[in-house]
Design a protein around this nucleic acid. Structure first.
Lengths: 246, 246
DNA sequence: CGAGGGTTTGAAGTGCATCAAATAGTGTGG
DNA sequence: CCACACTATTTGATGCACTTCAAACCCTCG
């Protein structure tokens, strides 16, 4: 089969995404049929909650925010995704509408694939179905923890937990963390107001001795942060899964 | 194949569970091998967060609470399940431990099935895998809404939303709702303290004119409750899925 | 009838939201 | 390179929502 360079690039990316691991080349080609790779600037809306779901999306680079809005305009951030993360794929079941809106929040490269490709493939490709199940189970555990955090952690602890998930777990000793996007956005991701985020981060600094310079955060040692945040969590520190791709 | 009466009863139940719909009898028999149906009294612990996961559970009748506990003893309720709901099944992927604890909170009949049965079956039975994917996708949407509610609804609105989900959606006009379990438990399910629940319910009564007598709640018409609670939600009223079995 | 758990009520405190305003930071065009 | 405009972030002041601790009340069941 002859392929365009774009198609080749897409297939190469798919190979590294968890749910497509172990799929053979033919299957990937079928999945990637009519797929597109597009660059988007900050602020671009990929789709709106309630839109008819036609494609699934894969973040190649950059960041994408998933959110919903209530009638009175309040916004709830569902998740913020980066390289390797997939979204919009759950709409192949029952509903054919997107359950949230998606907005590009940093310059991004986004791959999109027709949902029908996935739907067709999954119906005959048990391996793919199992991969997807495994990914969904992982995501579900994340959501459970998310709910737990919202109900029992305070603002500073949630920030601490968020920072810990940005740290490469193999790192030890002094650590430098770089916030991947706006503080305002981090705040909304954690379900709090920007003002609260600012104050809670200051409180966290006083409590754990971390050092904040703009979007860069330095930490002499992880343990203090771990004991501060993870005390109010049912999981133990190296909390696996939490940052894993879908 | 000769079957015990218990096995027959179990298979009959499985047939009515969403994820087993469309499975043929042979498959159900394989799944039900070494399954048990047991009665449990209030307070019985089925398993603890972190236990090695060996079986999946299905509520035949009664209510089961899924929860986690932090080091300092605080408890977060993950979900409270009833007839037709399945739990513990996600442990067939990656982890082989239960991601939460499970406690019987009302006298219940619980079916349990070895996880290996499901694991084996799912690997060859694409229909089952697809059903399970569909169920997981539905559950995921519920979780998304749960997170949204925790971050943007207040206590009274969350109670209102909870009540609306107990109402048979086809009903209209005057409605009587019966709380299925302790108010204290409802409170924890909604992520609030019992005292807060009590006060928030009183506030909801004043705001929407519902009538509370112990565990029975009467409501002249749904609309007032809908407009009170659903204003702070991104979904529109007859919020499907939310009470659906996994 | 009394014990015990569930539920409500009261009083006080904490945490987060909100509104307002100051400050820092960034990118633009001159 | 500067001044300006605009946005992100911080800080202050205040109010409301929920929690916490305490105690009363109610209901059920032995």
């Amino acid at each position: 089969m002859t392929q365009t360079p774009e198609a080749e690039k897409i297939i190469k990316t798919l190979k590294n995404v968890a749910i497509f691991k172990g799929c053979d080349d033919k299957a990937l080609e079928r999945l990637a049929a009519n797929a597109h790779l597009q660059k988007h600037t900050k602020g671009h809306i990929l789709f709106i909650h309630g839109d008819e779901a036609a494609r699934l999306y894969l973040v190649q680079s950059g960041w994408v925010k998933l959110f919903r809005e209530t009638l009175d305009g309040t916004q709830a951030v569902v998740d913020i995704l980066t390289s390797g993360h997939l979204f919009g794929e759950t709409s192949i079941f029952e509903d054919d509408i997107y359950p949230y809106s998606a907005e590009v929040v940093e310059p991004s490269e986004i791959i999109s694939i027709p949902l029908t490709n996935l739907k067709t493939e999954i119906e005959t490709n048990n391996k793919l179905a199992l991969n997807m199940l495994s990914a969904m189970a992982r995501y579900r555990r994340q959501q459970d923890r998310e709910i737990e955090h919202l109900s029992i952690q305070n603002a500073s602890q949630r920030i601490g937990c968020f920072l810990l998930r940005l740290v490469n777990q193999s790192e030890d000793g002094a650590v430098t963390i770089h916030l991947p996007y706006d503080k305002t956005l981090v705040a909304s991701r954690l379900g709090m107001q920007p003002e609260t985020f600012s104050r809670a981060l200051a409180k966290l600094r006083d409590a754990t001795g971390l050092n904040v310079k703009g979007a860069t955060i330095e930490l002499e040692n992880l343990n203090q942060l771990v004991s501060y945040s993870c005390a109010a969590c049912s999981s133990e520190f190296p909390c696996k899964d939490l940052q894993a791709a879908e």
